[in-house]
Design a protein around this nucleic acid. Structure first.
Lengths: 181, 181
DNA sequence: GTCTATATAATGATAGAC
DNA sequence: GTCTATCATTATATAGAC
């Protein structure tokens, strides 16, 4: 799906890739609609795990950014949202869960923004959520299409901004020091 | 394409919508690959017109933002880029032209950023291009899926930011004044 | 240029043997 | 659960009449 787009995901193709008959796909998932729904649910489950991991880490903003920009999650989300335009059942479920997850991320970010003194310049915390989601999505999706103009600079700016808010612990001359936890 | 996704765009459907036989689509466009290529070219042509219009206006940043967020262009671009994952011929053309247009937009923005004193805070002008493209894309695409959480606040922040850089000419008590040009 | 007719391939899905 | 067989539908595309 991430490599060739949702249109390449067919029961026959999935069966071949899994080394089984395509009919087994229907045995387990009934319809393709349902298969894509299950895929979306698996994706959101993983997103929630990554989200909660980020907010118990010592650098929540950096972890959140690195998770979003590294994982194939942004790519998969983009593809499933494109597919949702074509499949009504996906559309409702996606709209619902995106808003739900965004609410959680927002309330988690609210505390961070207060702590970092960002509330004055950025305003409401949902803005930061939209900003992070939007920027990671365009960087990841364009990257996969072979578009890279401006990417390195944009990432550098954002990472500099994060570094200022969440300075990395500097290691001594004896090499990197692992913090006790 | 914008309403139901690229998978809904078939020669049969196009023929029906145009009130002609689907075979005529092949008469004019030969293959579907070529049809999508022509669509992409029409899209980029219009993008270039809007871009040049923005930069001769008195509020280039505002015009650029409003063009991007209003037109169905962002939606079409997103759909065609999703389709490009599935169609190799599109992929190369899209990667090439996106970078080309981005180069033009960047060099146009470079002058604006200097004038507005943004270079110090934002850095290189391509960053602003990526920022505008990314934010308009997520706002437009999510909007069409029925996702709106955080959108109003994000738009408000960006528009406030533009208003500060490009203050609107305040009209007198006699009503709006049209500037002579 | 627009139509009818048709070739060919791929899709989602079901029924039933084992 | 996994297979074979099969169906109805849809897709792109071409050939040829008018």
């Amino acid at each position: 799906m991430c490599e060739e787009g949702y249109a390449a995901v067919t029961s026959r193709r999935l069966g071949a890739e899994a080394g089984v008959n395509p009919q087994l796909i229907h045995y387990y998932f009934q319809s393709m609609d349902n298969l894509f729904l299950e895929l979306w649910r698996r994706h959101t489950d993983r997103s929630l795990v990554l989200l909660s991991q980020a907010f118990i880490s010592q650098s929540p903003l950096r972890t959140l950014w690195e998770n979003s920009i590294t994982a194939r999650g942004a790519s998969l989300a983009a593809e499933l949202m494109a597919l949702a335009r074509h499949r009504k059942v996906l559309r409702a479920e996606i709209a619902r869960t995106v808003e739900s997850i965004r609410r959680m991320q927002t309330s988690a970010l609210a505390g961070i923004m207060d702590e970092y003194g960002l509330t004055k310049s950025l305003g409401r915390p949902e803005i930061l959520t939209v900003l992070i989601t939007g920027m990671t999505r365009i960087l990841v999706v364009e990257d996969e299409l072979g578009i890279s103009l401006g990417h390195a600079d944009t990432r550098a700016l954002i990472e500099t901004w994060i570094d200022r808010l969440e300075p990395k612990a500097r290691s001594g001359s004896g090499g990197p020091e692992k913090p006790k936890d």
